[in-house]
Design a binder for these strands. Structure first.
Lengths: 257, 257
DNA sequence: CTCTGTGAACTAGTTCACAGCT
DNA sequence: AGCTGTGAACTAGTTCACAGAG
């Protein structure tokens, strides 16, 4: 990933591990809930439980941000909410465009979690002319032709791609050319981007497949306790036997919508 | 997390690293695309490029499954598709229920990537009586009252939660009590489950927050830092502290018209 | 000679356990 | 006392680099 050479071995203070960054939103969510209940302080143990991690990890994570706790007491909820928000860049407003207003795009447009975290849906964009002008989540959908203009005039730097897989790369290129430098990709395809552009992907079917893997393992476990290890040879042989069948006539691509 | 269980150092053959499992669906997708184009074999280099990883990692990943390649040549596409499918448990049929048919639930129901990978939507379930009977993606929505009955009579072991956050834990408990042992959670909340139940979560706003973090860093590189004073806690807390809403917006638009 | 498969070296991430502040 | 903050030990994951199959 873009992590390639961003390596700055220098300044220790700005070296927050990626794994920690990925957990900050989790802590923020837990802290927000506490804040709403007007809880003034929280210990690493309590907060860790609320966020679903262990407390040593949480303390270590916070230690990368600075020393924001009070020994013997815990963390001040409001203060920590502020610090994490600032670290994540949520104290500023991020205009976002969503491209591809199918089922998923509409769900995203309606998703409350965006707006409440400093993200503002600046525009909804779809290639279907019939969609143009239709309101989704209170915003009129605009045609793809407007893409560059929207990005530039709103200073959008974050784009969300919720198009079919076949359109994603092209949309991505237009977004990047227009100035977008961070992309959240829901299309089940690998996007190629120039250096300096970040891509994160969310693939719904991948998550299910990972679950299926573990589920299958559970099921196998009951049949025979620790059935032997030489399974590999046997499996390989069996597989070769039924080798080249057209496994599934099943299907075309993996496209959303 | 469910990772709690002790690693069995024994039988190497069954010790596929979690990171590798998470990439298998990616390889499978790339291979499926090649298969459709009737490409017979592929090298680790080519396949790695298509999947967006580096080739050493890919070879190492495959080495955990067995020796399915041919030195000097590469991998047989069809054979590898079969091996990975089987490893992931996709050669069997997984009935899945989706609970919470809002925008997101509907998007999931319509998502082609599920059906094409051995997942079958056995039922759509919603708590709103007004939804009952309405067809979504060609399937009539059923009321939550039917949940236990549906799970049991269809032998469902995988459940997808797309309800608002407030309902998620309760739905989760009912799913688990009825026999579900793998859950894909889209609600922005931490689910507590008994041992032996797997949970994977997808949080749309977390991904955006991670992007914002990196985006901020890029911007900060050039101009002056916003160097927020430590005292400004109130503003940030107000900005961040609000909803606790579901993934789909029951919430109307957050945007001023 | 080409490309896989894999030990070995390295890097990132997690957990432990305790010093030290309040 | 109680709890944070953190070096040190450990574990998981990645990359290197090359032996060896075809």
């Amino acid at each position: 990933m873009a992590t390639g050479r961003t390596h700055r071995p220098a300044t220790r203070s700005r070296g927050i591990p990626e794994a920690t960054v990925a957990r900050l939103p989790l802590y923020l969510r837990a802290l927000t809930a506490l804040s709403e209940r007007s809880v003034p302080t929280v210990s690493s143990e309590e907060l860790a439980a609320a966020a679903g991690v262990n407390s040593a990890k949480l303390r270590k994570d916070f230690s990368y941000l600075g020393s924001y706790g009070t020994r013997g007491v815990g963390y001040d909820v409001e203060y920590l909410v502020y610090q994490i928000s600032r670290e994540l860049g949520l104290t500023q407003d991020w205009p976002v465009v969503i491209v591809g207003i199918g089922n998923l795009g509409a769900a995203l447009a309606n998703y409350g979690g965006f707006a409440s975290r400093g993200f503002r849906v600046a525009a909804l964009i779809d290639a279907d002319p019939a969609m143009a002008g239709k309101p989704v989540a209170g915003i009129a959908v605009q045609h793809t032709d407007e893409l560059e203009h929207i990005i530039e005039s709103n200073g959008v730097s974050i784009g969300v791609i919720a198009t079919p897989a076949g359109a994603a790369q092209q949309v991505c290129e237009r977004l990047v050319a227009a100035g977008v430098t961070s992309i959240l990709n829901f299309a089940p395809t690998v996007l190629t981007v120039p250096d300096g552009v970040d891509v994160r992907k969310v693939d719904l079917s991948i998550e299910l497949q990972i679950l299926a893997f573990h589920e299958q393992r559970k099921a196998g476990e009951e049949g025979g306790p620790d059935s032997g290890g030489p399974a590999v040879a046997a499996r390989a042989a069996a597989a070769v036997a039924d080798d080249r069948k057209g496994p599934d006539g099943d299907m075309p691509a993996v496209m959303p919508a």
